[in-house]
Amino acid sequence: MFKNSNHVQGRRKLLQFIMFGFFRVSAAINGIALLAIFYFLVSRGWRAITWTFLTQPPIDSMTKGGILPCIVGTVCLSLGAIILAIPIGVASAIYLNEYTFQGRVLRMIRLGINNLAGVPSIVFGLFGLAFFVVYLKMGVSILAGAFTLAVLTLPVIIGATEEGLRSVPDTYREASLGLGATKWQTIYRVVLPAALPGILTGGILGLSRAAGETAPIMFTAAAFFTPSLPSSIFDEVMALPYHIYVLATAGTEIEATRHLQYGTALVLIFLVLGLNLMAIIYRARLQKRR
């Protein structure tokens, strides 16, 4: 036998038990919080979800009718943001991870990106207003909103892409270069395909973030009320998060439209879930194909 007395053994086992319990409870709290939010929204909002709600514009000062323009607006804005942000974000991550030796310049750029991630979203809204809407004369439009949201999601996409690129073993790069491939061929043909799942994860996170933001689109894209669907990227649109905000703070019948507010929130959550699911299925199919 080892020298540990029963007493010591018992204490170690107790500590083990306590710590395991602590970890388990922490994990459970996460799950419970998610379920609680979900339950809260479903219980208060499910009555609002009808076919009309999903397919009609709001009527009677937004106290009745549906939220179709908001759904369309949010889809346009978040997809637009992702389409703009992915090429720039992926290219930046490639530059940072593949083309530069570690050094001071690189640390400065990384610091900049991390700071960008910490900037409050209302600041992005003001920046978007000043730069895209006014200076670049885009006006309050899908385009300006998508650009603003793109800037906001860039750090997420860069971070996830860098993570994905770092997970590609160096031996792939060496094998490719050893066969007479150029650096770009190596990145394009070997590194990027291997990093694609990571990049898609970044895209998913960015998309969710963009779809749920209110402040950045408040001055750049979102309309208080417009019953018609957008006909071009230069139109302003309604958007789900902003619609919730409007109904809950500035509506004519704040109390009477509570179920519409919760219903809209529910639709937003399912929309994000749906978009994520599509990306996740696509990612799974990619990984299978290897």
Binding site: E174, S176, G178, L179, G180, A181, R290
Partner: peptide, 20 residues
């Protein structure tokens, strides 16, 4: 360097086929 590496092939310590 690129065409040099084409003339000199390399096999590595751990087998490293591409995920293709």
């Amino acid at each position: 360097v690129v065409s040099l590496r084409r003339r000199i092939g390399m096999v590595f310590q751990k087998p490293n086929p591409f995920p293709k």
